[in-house]
């Protein structure tokens, strides 16, 4: 039994399998492994990226939290066990590859903004997102302006007017406004092979 589990683990992490299932080629996966090794050994050399190591890699500071980095960590941690393992890292980062389908990027962004994971983006979630954006950007806006931005958002996206944004409405809006998904592409990933020392 142990032998079978080991084989499954090897297969799950195997660069050829990951290459077949993601936008990366095997050489890029090897380069990502170097990056993963660096990130996952920053605080504890255990082959797993903790939230603190993720924040350290992202901000150069393990205490520098943000709603957006928390949400990305939660989505990268697809097994929800509080750490990111290599296969999760590669599979999740694939959506940020320049050649990943726009529909996959839109679906990932929807999950990111659906903070409470209800399957819809609701007014309260949009408000939390705006306030987090203002906080991170060190900007201040009056509550009236924030409410007006929320109204505008729902005018633009909530096409059936039910007060919440579903995946179809989001997909339609993102297709009409591809700049919304700009942050869903990491140009570095196309150059992953040169990241390897």
């Amino acid at each position: 039994m142990g032998c079978i589990c080991t084989k499954q683990q090897l297969k799950y992490d195997d660069p050829a399998v990951l290459a077949a299932e993601t936008c990366f080629n095997e050489a890029e996966i090897e380069a990502l492994h170097e990056l993963f090794r660096k990130l996952s050994s920053a605080l504890k050399d255990d082959g797993l990226i903790s939230k603190e190591e993720f924040q350290l890699g992202l901000f150069r500071n393990s205490k520098n939290q943000s709603l957006f980095s928390d949400r990305i960590f939660q989505l990268l941690d697809s097994k929800h066990d509080g750490v990111i393992e290599f296969a999760e890292f590669v599979r999740s980062l694939s959506v940020f590859h320049p050649e990943a389908p726009q529909s996959d990027k839109a679906a990932f962004a929807f999950k990111l903004y659906d903070i409470w994971e209800t399957g819809f983006i609701e007014r309260d979630e949009v408000k939390v997102l705006i306030l987090a954006f203002l906080d991170e950007s060190e900007l201040m806006l009056s509550d009236d302006i924030v409410e007006a931005i929320i109204d505008k958002t729902f005018e633009d996206v909530d096409s059936n007017g039910d007060g919440k944004i579903d995946q179809e409405e989001w997909k339609e809006f993102a297709t009409r406004n591809p700049s919304l998904l700009k942050n869903m592409t990491i140009p570095y990933l196309k150059l992953a092979t040169v990241l390897s020392p």
């Binding site: 990056l35 954006f133 950007s137 505008k152």
Partner: peptide, 28 residues
């Protein structure tokens, strides 16, 4: 027709910001 043509919507605001920028992970 839109009632607030001069306002930006929340997703455009966040999409243009660096809030979701993951490039820090790749910089040495």
């Amino acid at each position: 027709s839109p009632k607030s043509p001069n306002l930006i919507n929340a997703f455009q605001l966040i999409g243009m910001s660096s809030c979701l920028d993951l490039s820090g992970l790749f910089e040495k």
